[in-house]
Each structure stands twice: as structure tokens, then as C-alpha cells.
Amino acid sequence: MDNLKEINCKEIFRKAYERRYTWRNDFKGYQGKCIFLRNNIIHKGSFALGKDFKPNIQKIEDENIVKSIASQLFEVCIHRVKREFESVHSENNFNLLKNSESGILMNVSGKNQGDKYRVKNDCINMVYRTIHGSIIEIFVEEFLDTGKGFLSKKYSSQQIDPNTLKAKSQKLEYEDEFVNIDKKDYWILSSRTIKYLNQNKEEETQKFVFDDIRLLN
């Protein structure tokens, strides 16, 4: 551990940031069928996601389920936008906190003061960020190597109260599956399973399936 001072956290984070999988800038969106499953109840519909990243869900009447499907589609696509490292992090510095088997843990000073990241094998496997007044803490267990970058495949997410630093939401366990469309290196979410404990501390599962996917021209 004598070389800790030689670790350049900003360059390590930059490399991992640039190895995330993103869509090309000429992405025009996609459409397909969507299925929502919870407690043995199935809702089937169709969807379109335009280049403006606004999901349009059809043939499902339950507004809460429509919102839930739309939020998954939006959340997925917003992370596929290619934004240059300097445009996002030029006003941030990255400072070493710990180097362990779990990865290189660093905190951020500057514009995004207080955020934290952890990097292992050139992948960001922990995110601790303040978003809209809440801290979001994400731990990634498994990645998919698309050949064009890495996608989080199995991970957990939880909201933390920024004042008490205690959990303010249940922990959500995600498992994602992706499909490569038309061999054009557009990796699209084909299913997402979310597990969590309900108010009775019983495990519940929601599953979103996206099928018959076609790129929009």
C-alpha cells in the first residue's frame, strides 16, 4: 500500500467512465411490446421510446403501471447518452479514500462535493450521489461486457437521507437482461427484475419484459 499516493483517482475514474456502454449520437429510439408482472398479475401493452427519450405506453389502462414502465425505459435510456467526461466532471477532483479488494474508493471535491465512487477492473461498481435532494447509493455485483463498453447487469439501489445518512427507502435488487438489436451494437434492455421487501418484510418481485424490439428509423 506504499503506492497509495501515486494512485491518480481522476484518471482511474475517467477510464472507467469512458468504458461505460453508451448509444451512438444518431440513436433514433425503438419500439416493441411490454409486459409487467407482479404477484402473478400480468399486464401487456406496447411502447415506443423516441429520440427525445419520452416513453409512450399503449394498451395498459392502469396509470401507475404505465408510469412504472415509462420510468424504467427513461431511466435506462438516460444512462445510454454519451456525455464527454470533461463536460460532466471538469470541475470535480477525485480523492482516494481506500484501496481494497472491493476496488478503489474515492470521494469527489469541487462541483459535486460529497459524491463517492468505487472502481474495480476499470468498472464503476459503487455510486454514492446526491440527486434531487436525496443520496442514491448503488452497488454493482455483475457487469455485461458488450464489446463496446460495460453495462450494469446485477445491482442494488437505495435512497439515503442526506441529513441523517440513514436509509429512506427500501433496498431494490435489480437484475437486467439485454439484447443486441440488428447487430448494430444497440444493446437494449429486454427484461428487468426488481426484488424488495414490502411493509410486511415479505419479498416482492416486479418484472418488466420488453419484447419484439425494433429500432425506429
Rank of each mutant, 00 (worst) to 15 (best):
S68Y: 03
K183M: 12
V81Y: 07
N64R: 11
E75Y: 14
E173Q: 09
S90D: 09
T130E: 13
Q159M: 08
H43C: 13
S157D: 11
N25S: 04
N112C: 10
N200F: 15
L197V: 08
K154D: 11
V108F: 03
C34W: 00
N64E: 05
R14T: 05
V81W: 09
L144K: 04
L144S: 03
I57M: 03
Q113H: 15
P162R: 07
E75T: 14
S191I: 08
K207H: 09
N163G: 12
A16C: 01
F27M: 02
N121M: 12
N25A: 14
I12G: 04
K67M: 15
V81R: 07
N99P: 01
F210D: 02
N200S: 10
S152E: 15
R19H: 12
I124M: 08
Q158I: 09
T205D: 15
R38M: 09
R129D: 06
S71Y: 02
E204N: 13
K67G: 15
E173W: 15
N56H: 09
E137I: 12
N217R: 08
R80P: 00
K153E: 11
L4K: 09
I65S: 03
W23C: 02
E101K: 08
I138G: 08
I12F: 09
F85Q: 04
M106C: 00
R214V: 12
R129L: 05
Q113Y: 15
L37K: 05
I35A: 13
K116S: 06
Y117V: 04
Q113M: 12
K195M: 10
V209G: 07
L73P: 00
K148V: 09
R20D: 13
K82G: 11
H132D: 14
K148D: 06
D185A: 04
S190H: 08
R214D: 15
N200I: 15
F143M: 05
E175H: 12
F150G: 10
V179K: 07
R19G: 07
K10Q: 13
G133S: 10
D62Q: 15
R80A: 01
N107D: 03
Q72K: 11
S109K: 13
E137H: 08
L37V: 05
V119T: 07
L37G: 01
D182P: 02
A70N: 05
D211F: 13
N8D: 10
Q58K: 15
Y186S: 08
L96H: 00
K33W: 11
D52P: 01
I65N: 03
I135S: 00
Q72S: 11
V66S: 02
N56P: 05
S100Y: 04
D115S: 10
K207G: 10
I7P: 03
N180H: 06
N99F: 03
R20C: 11
Y21E: 00
E202Y: 15
G29S: 02
V76R: 03
I57C: 03
K33V: 04
I213C: 02
E202D: 06
I213P: 00
K59F: 14
W187Q: 04
A48M: 09
G133I: 12
G50L: 00
I78A: 07
